[in-house]
């Protein structure tokens, strides 16, 4: 009788509860000064198989029309998943794209993607490259068909998404997201200093002070971007409308998303069109190259002339600080 009672109580306790076994998400522990991920990780829990599947898809030129271009062509691990050579992305048949390939790092924390913020969810980023005629020039439906015909992908997808019948585009995008979400940059020297495990040199410390005074309002810690859109005075005529292409508002002409400064030293060339080959050119732009236009960022209009005055020694100190944002653990992590 007692046993019956006990069994019943157990049943009562467990019968309505959802299966809440720990999904053992691989997503890394974050430093306490990091924000929470924007990406809903609970809706696409990162599994070992899913992450590795995403990585292999990221590196597979099957995703392009002539099987020649993989995501990793323009997003190279050694330089924080950007393109070290080309100002503009290079697609199938050596076609030149219209913008510079940005680093794929800390995607989990981003609200909007691409230089103009037109993409509102990480899942929707890859089709922009896959279906762009100047980039991978493929169709999602055709990629899905190729994957379903493949010798190993169907089985690997099934392992990650057990309820699926065939591979579909959302499953492809969820797998790619699992890989990209894992690319968290949080182990630079800057982070170690913040965590009390290292110290800045005198030059780096001076650079950090200058950064806080002159850069931090847009390139805000700890992601080193405030995720807003600004016109930083590159042009007076806007061949690329930037943010205005999405909002369709003239108030946003020539504005682009503030890029993160994490790993900035290794992610040349710079700007949405890759026009600056090195950081000196970038800093000199802010010092003496900012052009006035109606949508120019207010932050660049506080002095006598547009821009941010930077002396030669300030520039050197800033570059010393920016070098502490390189995450060597990320770019040498054998998992990626």
């Amino acid at each position: 009788m007692r046993l019956y009672l006990f069994a019943i109580s157990l049943l009562l306790f467990t019968s309505c509860r959802k299966d809440d076994k720990d999904e053992a998400s691989l997503f890394p522990q974050l430093p306490d000064y990091f924000p929470s991920p924007v990406y809903p990780l609970n809706e696409n829990p990162i599994s070992q198989d899913g992450f590795v599947l995403g990585k292999d898809l990221f590196n597979d030129p099957l995703l392009s029309s002539d099987n020649s271009v993989a995501c990793s062509n323009c997003h190279v691990k050694a330089v924080a998943f950007t393109d070290p050579q080309h100002a503009l992305s290079l697609g199938v048949d050596e076609r030149s794209g219209i913008r510079n390939a940005p680093p794929i790092v800390n995607m989990a924390f981003m609200k909007e993607f691409m230089w103009d913020g037109g993409v509102v969810h990480l899942d929707f980023v890859p089709p922009n490259a896959i279906e762009n005629p100047l980039e991978m020039d493929e169709k999602m439906a055709h990629v899905v068909a190729k994957l379903n015909r493949h010798s190993s992908y169907p089985g690997r997808f099934k392992k990650v998404f057990p309820t699926m019948d065939t591979i579909t585009s959302p499953l492809l995008l969820k797998a790619l997201a699992q890989f990209q979400l894992m690319l968290v940059s949080q182990a630079s020297k800057y982070d170690k200093v913040r965590q009390g495990k290292s110290e800045f040199t005198t030059t780096e410390a001076r650079g950090y002070d200058i950064y806080k005074q002159k850069c931090a309002s847009c390139h805000t810690e700890p992601l080193f971007t405030n995720q807003q859109f600004f016109n930083n005075g590159l042009d007076t005529q806007f061949a690329d409308e930037g943010r205005a292409r999405i909002t369709e508002s003239a108030l946003d002409l020539g504005k682009f998303k503030v890029p993160s400064l994490r790993n900035v030293v290794i992610t040349a060339p710079y700007m949405h069109d890759g026009r600056f080959k090195d950081l000196n050119a970038v800093l000199e732009h802010y010092n003496n190259g900012v052009k006035y236009s109606a949508t120019l960022a207010a932050q660049l209009q506080s002095g006598a002339k547009p821009g941010i005055a930077l002396s030669v020694s300030e520039k050197a100190d800033l570059i010393a600080f920016l070098s502490t944002l390189t995450d060597y653990e990320l770019i040498s992590d054998p998992r990626f």
């Binding site: 439906a141 579909t168 995008l173």
Partner: peptide
């Protein structure tokens, strides 16, 4: 839109 990649009637590859 905001739930990310979706299947069925909203599958971007099949709905076009």
């Amino acid at each position: 839109v905001l739930n990310g990649a979706t299947g069925g009637a909203l599958d971007p590859a099949t709905s076009k």
